[in-house]
């Protein structure tokens, strides 16, 4: 079976509000960059299929995939939508290429949260209409806060640990030109951040940006043609824990653990803590970074926080993450995707 590689990547946006481009124009910009990065490939000729990752209510358009093909060169070609995060799309592209039918697959994903005037109401529409929505939660971050408390209480994680995650992410972002919210925070700054939903402060919650990202994946033969430096996808995993918030593990992201196990099995990784050189983990909330480091097997359960404080250099090297700012929430708290390269 063919190997699968990433041969091109492009982006546009990554600022709190992109005022001068529609989401379609952002997609076009990102796609142009990605195709140039993939050795100047022509999407009209060289690409077999396109996947767009989006959700209707994020877009404000029903059946939003209608608007996917043109800006990425996919009109009258094989295009479809995955409702989920973009790593899940990468997983689909991986399976498509592995099947042997497709050689080059493009994955597009974008978010334009600044277009949403009623973001909180829209997010609340994701709650179960019978068991959760009637509560009318004043802030949907409360659900993450429930997870945060469960995790912190069970594993002895304190605010000092969250502060460290926040500080590290903002510092790392200073070296990333796309990190809108990067900055240098002092030890005391975290405590000045207002409590939003105890135990989470404003600083613990990633802020939104508008952005589009396009990734080009290819089979081994096509990758060798397109690129001298393909990055091989060794494994991909995605798992759902459950649709039912009440039935999921509040203290530990089991879904991420299971997804990682799938990916490691494909990649033949036996000891991720030793074998994984670096990781970009979902840190849309500060505590999520700690949880995910553990779920991915990069640290034993409940020990990420202490590692972070005790061996900041090791930890920073093992898990440098982009600024929390560069994440925008997609997907649910009960779902996870892992894709070590």
């Amino acid at each position: 079976m063919t190997k699968v590689a990433i041969v091109g990547l492009g982006w546009s946006g990554f600022s709190p509000e992109v005022v001068d481009m529609s989401f379609r124009e952002m997609m076009f910009k990102a796609a142009q960059r990605a195709y140039e990065d993939a050795g100047g490939l022509d999407p009209r000729r060289d690409v077999d299929a396109f996947i767009s990752c989006q959700e209707d209510f994020w877009e404000g358009i029903s059946i939003a995939d209608e608007f996917a093909p043109d800006p990425i060169g996919g009109a009258m070609k094989s295009v479809y939508t995955v409702a989920g995060d973009s790593l899940q799309c990468v997983g689909q592209a991986y399976a498509m290429i592995k099947s042997g039918l497709f050689d080059v697959v493009v994955v597009e994903s974008h978010g334009k949260p600044s277009d949403m005037l009623t973001l909180h109401d829209v997010m609340s529409m994701a709650l179960d209409p019978i068991s959760l929505r009637p509560l009318g939660l004043a802030n949907i971050h409360a659900l993450a806060a429930l997870e945060a408390r469960a995790y912190m209480a069970k594993y002895g994680v304190g605010p000092q640990h969250l502060a460290e995650v926040v500080e590290k992410a903002h510092r790392a972002g200073l070296r990333n030109p796309r990190a809108s919210y990067a900055g240098r925070l002092n030890a005391g700054d975290y405590e000045l951040s207002p409590v939003v939903v105890d135990p989470l402060r404003e600083a613990d919650i990633a802020k939104f940006v508008d952005a589009a990202v396009v990734v080009v994946l290819a089979s081994e033969a096509a990758a060798r043609d397109l690129s001298d430096t393909p990055v091989w996808v060794e494994g991909v995993g995605w798992r759902t824990e459950t649709s039912t918030l009440e039935l999921h593990d509040w203290a530990f992201p089991l879904h991420a653990r299971m997804a990682a196990e799938d990916a490691y099995r494909q990649a033949k990784i036996a000891d991720p803590a030793k074998e994984v050189g670096f990781a970009e983990v979902d840190n849309r909330y500060s505590f999520k970074e700690l949880q995910h480091i553990e779920a991915l097997g990069l640290a034993p359960r409940g020990s990420a926080a202490e590692m972070l404080l005790e061996e900041p250099s090791t930890q920073a090297a093992a898990c440098p993450s982009t600024s929390a700012a560069a994440r925008w929430p997609r997907g649910s708290p009960s779902k996870s995707t892992a894709s070590p390269d």
Partner: peptide, 24 residues
């Protein structure tokens, strides 16, 4: 109570009249 959270502010940062606690 397996876990709880106390909402102090709304989604857009506005302060609630009084904090509200929600639990699992």
């Amino acid at each position: 109570v397996e876990t709880y959270a106390v909402i102090h502010r709304g989604f857009d940062g506005e302060e609630l009249k009084e904090p509200v606690a929600v639990a699992f």
